[in-house]
Amino acid sequence: MKIIDAVHVFFDYMRKDENDKIEEISPALSDMNLEIEKGSFVCVLGHNGSGKSTFAKMVNGLLLPREGSVYVADMDTADDELLIKIRETAGMVFQNPDNQIIGNIVEEDVAFGPENIGVPTAEIRDRVDEALEAVNMTKYKDRSPGKLSGGQKQRVAIAGVMAMKPECIILDEPTAMLDPKGRKDVIRTVRELNKRDGITIVLITHYMEEAVDADRVVVMDGGRVVMDGTPREIFSRVEELKALRLDVPQITELAYELRKAGMPVPCGILRKEELEEVIMELLFEGDKGSCDSTDTDGTEPDLGTDGTEPDLGTDRPEQDLDTDREDKSEGACQ
């Protein structure tokens, strides 16, 4: 069953001058299509201006499509009557932890959503306690949000959404302003909510490491979806990702470089442990050819041609920077 369905969505940002005349139109989404299954963990990648945030706001009904429709649990976001219900179903967590906490005390902030939708007092209490427990912030419930770390604030924000009993949470770069520890905590929390409570998670991020454990990775560029698949599929396409100005996780990049230099390393390696096994096998124990991981056999030759495809990035102005770096690492490998 799908929880989010975006159908041929178009959206433009407009800049108006003092007389309300349109000065500039910049398209944010152009023919975006995306279905998200209930209960899945989807990671959305893309550089700034690729339309990720606009899409997130569409799901929550904060923005409405100029053309096309967005459905949340079969409710059309364009229907004013349904707006509150939609926002209850699909909650949202934003980038800046300070600018989304309304309450002056943690538990009061978590209660803000349920209060708005008129949940009876006794039930608000239960929901707040549950939500704080779910993000592991119970012992901070009486604190002032100002005294919390960035990661803790984001978990409070997530609890605020959880207290509305949503089916889906959209997180718009929730870790961009956090330190590594805060980042880990937030991601762990989100993953738990997905696994334990079956909440659908749409995680928009710049950190490729966060995408590794997702069920599905969606890459956006120019206001539409350009890549869509499992993390392994997506991160096998290193050249394409680089052409889209996205990074790959360090481990994936190392595997890719090793393969480029002639080692028979399968593609789409995501985790340290996998690469470790592969390297141990190649260098230590078995001989060449013992690499029988089935899921990568098919894609490997493809990748070879992909890797040498020259015209992928040539029309991009910032190209030299990229090739610079690549030359460096290539050189180092030979």
């Binding site: 990049e253 190392l254 090793l258 390297i279 180092a332």
Partner: peptide, 22 residues
């Protein structure tokens, strides 16, 4: 048990180390 330098921090260095052994 691999004879690699375990203090490297960049992809390029690691790549060089592993390729050396290879």
């Amino acid at each position: 048990g691999l004879q690699v330098d375990d203090s490297v921090g960049t992809v390029a260095e690691a790549c060089r180390e592993i390729l050396r052994l290879w």
